[in-house]
Design a binder for these strands. Structure first.
Length: 275
DNA sequence: AAATACCGCAACCGCACACAG
DNA sequence: TCTGTGTGCGGTTGCGGTATT
């Protein structure tokens, strides 16, 4: 027999929040901050447990929440981050400004998962299991490059392509690469799991210590250059972001990063993402 | 129009961890 | 070192809206 919930013990309200409750909670936190969550309901005059208040605030009432449907770029980023982090929704959410872990989790389970499965991709492993899109065909093609900076049939090293997530394509973990070395100006696709991550290019995602640091999504003028990765001048995403926005991130210690993501978001909001 | 199925999302549950006493 | 408390996280549930029959 499991233990009873905190709400049961204290005979507190459960279920959907009323507008009045929301108003009380917002008013209290706006005035005093949340401090200890267990004391919030008492101080705010709510018949709820602290946990419930915390969840309501984080997932629904926070003023910096974006709401609305996910953009294609957000979806792309979620897929890429999930490939690296797995079901670490809070860590993924920390890199998507204005989105909550719960929101991302729901979106993943209700939408992205299905899309991936329809594309023959295992949403857990991100491995291609069925119908092979272009990238998979390239992978198994003996003429396919064994190094990223070569194109099939071209033994010469190539000028750096610009990498950006493909929009409106499924699966979304593919990158479209274009550059002068791309014969005929056509585009080819690489699957991130097979090439970008395996080659170490995207391992920085793993290493990122800064929670709450939004990733730059694709777009001008900050597209990543492969040569920057290949020749060792790769910026960490932190440095890159700092340079791009002229904004220095704080400490990377667990405590401070947590403090950033949890309570200092309103004081240290980074520049809005270039979506 | 009514019944049913389906889906998305808000909220709850329970576990793990950190920390203070 | 142990214990209790607070907090955060991932998984799951169930409600309400919409689509379909």
């Amino acid at each position: 027999m499991g233990r009873q919930s905190c709400c049961y013990k204290q005979k507190l309200r459960k279920g959907l929040w009323s507008p009045e409750e929301d108003e009380k909670l917002v008013e209290h936190i706006t005035k005093y901050g949340h401090g200890s969550w267990t004391s919030v309901p008492k101080l705010a005059g709510l018949q709820r447990c602290g946990k419930s208040c915390r969840l309501r605030w984080i997932n629904y009432l926070r003023p910096d929440l974006k709401r609305g449907t996910f953009s294609q770029e957000e979806e792309d980023l979620i897929v890429q981050l999930h490939e690296v982090m797995g079901n670490k929704w809070s860590q993924i959410a920390a890199r998507l400004p204005g989105r909550t872990d719960n929101e991302i989790k729901n979106y993943w389970n209700s939408c992205i998962k299905k899309k991936l499965m329809q594309s023959g991709i295992n949403p857990s492993t991100h491995a291609v299991e069925a119908a092979a899109p272009v990238a998979e065909a390239m992978r198994s093609d003996s003429s396919a490059p064994n190094s990223m900076n070569h194109f099939p049939g071209n033994s010469e090293p190539l000028p750096p392509p610009v990498v950006s997530p493909i929009s409106n394509t499924v699966p979304s973990t593919y990158f479209r690469c274009s550059g002068a070395g791309n014969p005929g100006g056509s585009q080819f696709e690489l699957q991130s799991s097979g090439l970008l991550f395996d080659s170490g290019i995207l391992q920085w995602l793993d290493l990122l210590p800064n929670k709450g640091v939004p990733l730059h999504l694709s777009g001008e003028p900050e597209d990543l250059k492969w040569s920057e990765y290949l020749n060792g001048t790769t910026l960490s995403i932190k440095d890159w972001e700092s340079q791009a926005h002229g904004w220095q991130y704080g400490s990377s210690s667990k405590e401070e990063s947590q403090a950033f993501s949890e309570s200092s978001w309103h004081e240290m909001q980074p520049p809005p993402p270039q979506l």
